[in-house]
Amino acid sequence: MTAEPLALRIDGVSKAYPNRGLALAPTTIEVRRGEFVSLVGPSGCGKSTLLGMAAGLLAPDSGTVEAMGQRVGGPGRERAIVFQDAALMPWLNVRHNVEYGLRAQRVPKAERRTRVAEALEMVHLDRVADRHPHELSGGMRQRVAIARALVLRPEILLMDEPFSALDAQTRTVLQDELQRIWLETRPAVVFVTHNLMEAAFLSDTVYLLSAGPGRIVRRYEVTVPRPREESDPRLVDIRQDMLDRLRSEVNAAAGRGDPDLAPADALAA
């Protein structure tokens, strides 16, 4: 046992879909409490699959997942997830969308109200609380999705490409906000992204996965102190190294004739 206890322990987990072969080779990842971990890797390498298993929405074929020391067999209160498409409930307004998880977990009404207000304030949405999702911009919708996760006060926050549908400016703003929120609340984060700069900028640790079936090919520790600047030369170096690695990964996979791969340039975002 290390001094720092683990938030999430993914141990030899693998997954195959029917008629699709292996989507994720046995993978082991440990996430310390309060640690920000990113997963990067070619499209189709199994990142979402891995996250789904950590969330308890998918059952692994082999291996185990432990969250806060407990074996994962389904969704749990200590974990929350944010998807690429915000997956909001269109019939509920922002406030009620954020409140939904608290209702599901039978949090008393008075407490729900203060926690929702708090979460909305954290993502600067208090002014649009009564709007419906279709009345929001893409960035606002993603903020709602983040607030909806934060309101549950998770110890582990799972995020699957939360910013990839956003334009570059909105994305930068939200990255800053996520960093701030994370510094304030310190959950452990597992963050999936295709954007290497984003991964370097936000993370303590970045895992780089091979083309599908995914396995970890490299682990980066980013020790640059926070708050960080994107232009920090140390971050730029790390990003460059990741990019080179990924290029060779993708090219190797292309040589194997893997059809599920994006062209290498797509990684250079």
Binding site: P75, I81, A87, G101, A104, Q105, R148
Partner: peptide, 16 residues
């Protein structure tokens, strides 16, 4: 993803 989001937030059974 809507169904997954609901279940991840803890919605189950009749409530879900």
């Amino acid at each position: 993803t809507l169904k997954m989001a609901g279940r991840a937030m803890g919605a189950r059974g009749l409530f879900y």
